[in-house]
Nucleic acid binder design. Structure first.
Lengths: 343, 343
DNA sequence: CTGAAAGCGCTAACAG
DNA sequence: CTGTTAGCGCTTTCAG
């Protein structure tokens, strides 16, 4: 690794001069000398050591991302958004993946062990002098264990901390569900079946709230038997659709695309055609949903935008530009495709 | 940020002693003094500055990961595998995402622009003193633009360089396709339809090779009209299945799960039941495939393992334990589920 | 057992 | 316009 010192030696100037020239300081050296320095640096493929620079400047231009689990479908897109924003603003990222799914066999809850792991990661990131940290949840919920000692701006993506001690960015589940419901109502649907996730889930609760609000807004009653609870998997959509179809619903609102795909299956077996005989809405806009036949109407969730926004908040806080906000809900986009028709 | 100097001042010893005590050097100080130092450090939440340490030790214990696109389905799992192995071995990762999909509107090819971007990233990583770099492709193929100046071990995941200049880890497409084909043949299937990806795709070519080899191995001829080409999307599976079913195939081997899901649709519309009336195999083991009804037989590709293996090779090279290998093909696992039955 | 001194690669402040 | 000096936080001889 060729250093600044080496170049200084070869060009008979001080390291300071080399540094100044290479950093484009005006008038750091005479034109001839300056050219000599840059040429030599070029030829030797000189590359500044960022460790040394950061140490001396007391600034790393780096933020840390902690993912609860990078392999869960929403995480990469959020990370991508963070990365994008950071790149545009001269920041870099380091990544720590907690791997919660694999570590705890998919059924962990917020355990002390989890808390310990978080603290360890926080320590490590602090040691690496990150200037801010973004915590990416693997599913939306309130996080009750908070990091112990936070010395830099800390922002939650896709989850939020108890009592909103730190800012967080989520999306507007409730509004999106209400939008979908209103759209179905406008198309003349009255008997709308709802396939929720588990009753305890944040997403289930907020989306259901939006659904009920929209129904009430149109003076429609919600029949309890038309609201059923699955487990987010395709299988449960397939199974639960049977009961709803038996009850002659004209539309089904599935709280995710996976369960909606099970509805296609169930409908096909009964000789019902989605879009024609029954309308269907999903949620998530998984990359496969557009390819369904007919294409699935669904809700696009702004994952990339969540990432970008978190990064923006973090960088703003680093620059002390703005005080920390609270919880931010980004709007979703309702995508009407062929699986929905008027009654 | 409390430093070693601060602690030295408070405990009336030199920074060297503090450092030695905190790093557990035997006999660095008297027992009492040592305890005092550790206590103070604890209370002040002292945290070593890794930048400084790395600079002085000329060692970062960090490797870089370059993803072509983190949001493509295989990338997170590979990154996860790398991360896992590194964590187990005391290494950390920094991530750079090229975002090729978004940058080039999904239809980039290996352009000069791409090459430039790669060099920029390489430079940056080198500046950060990574000890090795893993390049994660977004789909399997030969990469023709190589990084210009590589100063550390460099390993390809899920793609491979021209002339195998650097080691690479992929999976055994050909063998897996042959395994699937043999399994179908053993179940008595003779008229097997194949839904490939685009003809030019590496995956299409190698899997087709495996398919043909297995057929030939059993003295079976491959009818050209039974080998059709899609675009990896569900739609094309739906469409192409029609032609194959018209030709009375008893089994369909779809080269990915997405297109296989289209086959379910087509079959359902014709009143055919997958598993009973027609057997179906996918490829990729996408997380949704198990939830299909009936569950889809498919091929699990060892993405996590690819990541782990790449990390292993990289760390071994860093420690100069082994010479660089060539291309490594990891075995896939055939998952037989309910979508396959004997004729 | 303990500490002074040197130095990793770089930049900022200041003096000539 | 140019160079000297000092120091970021840490570890590592090596001398006491």
């Amino acid at each position: 690794m060729v250093t600044i010192k080496e170049i200084a030696r070869l060009t008979n100037v001080s390291t300071a001069t080399v540094s100044n020239v290479l950093n484009g300081k005006p008038g750091a050296a005479g034109a001839a000398k300056a050219r000599e320095i840059t040429t030599i640096a070029e030829n030797l493929h000189y590359m500044p050591n960022k460790l040394a620079r950061s140490l001396q400047q007391q600034k790393t231009n780096t933020i840390g991302i902690i993912t609860e689990d990078l392999t869960v479908f929403n995480a990469p897109e959020i990370v991508d958004g963070i990365d994008e924003y950071c790149e545009e603003n001269g920041y870099e990222i380091i990544l720590e993946n907690m791997r919660l799914f694999k570590r705890y066999n998919n059924d962990f809850t917020d355990t002390p062990k989890h808390h310990e792991l978080l603290d360890l990661i926080m320590k490590n990131m602090t040691a690496k002098q990150v200037e801010g940290i973004i915590y990416v949840g693997y599913h939306c919920r309130e996080i009750s264990y908070l990091p112990s000692r936070v010395q830099v701006p800390f922002v939650y993506a896709y989850c939020y901390p108890k009592e909103d001690i730190y800012p967080s960015v989520l999306y507007d589940d409730e509004g999106a569900a209400a939008d979908v419901t209103r759209l179905l109502i406008q198309k003349g649907h009255r008997r709308i079946g709802v396939i929720c996730g588990p009753a305890a889930s944040y997403h289930t609760k907020t989306r259901l709230k939006g659904f009920r609000a929209a129904m009430a807004g149109h003076g429609l009653k919600v029949k309890n038997s038309l609201v059923v609870y699955g487990d987010w998997e395709r299988q449960s959509g397939y199974r639960l659709a049977a009961g709803l179809l038996d009850q002659k619903v004209t539309a089904i609102f599935s709280f995710n695309d996976l369960m909606a795909s099970g509805v296609y299956e169930q409908a096909a077996e009964r000789g019902l055609r989605i879009g024609r005989d029954i309308s269907l809405f999903g949620f998530d806009n998984r990359d496969t949903s557009e390819g369904y036949v007919p294409s699935l109407s669904t809700v696009h969730v702004p994952l990339n935008e969540i990432g970008r926004r978190c990064a923006e908040i973090t960088l703003n806080q680093i620059k002390r530009r703005r005080p920390a906000g609270k919880r931010i809900y980004l709007p979703c986009t309702v995508l009407e495709r062929q699986s929905v028709e008027p009654v």
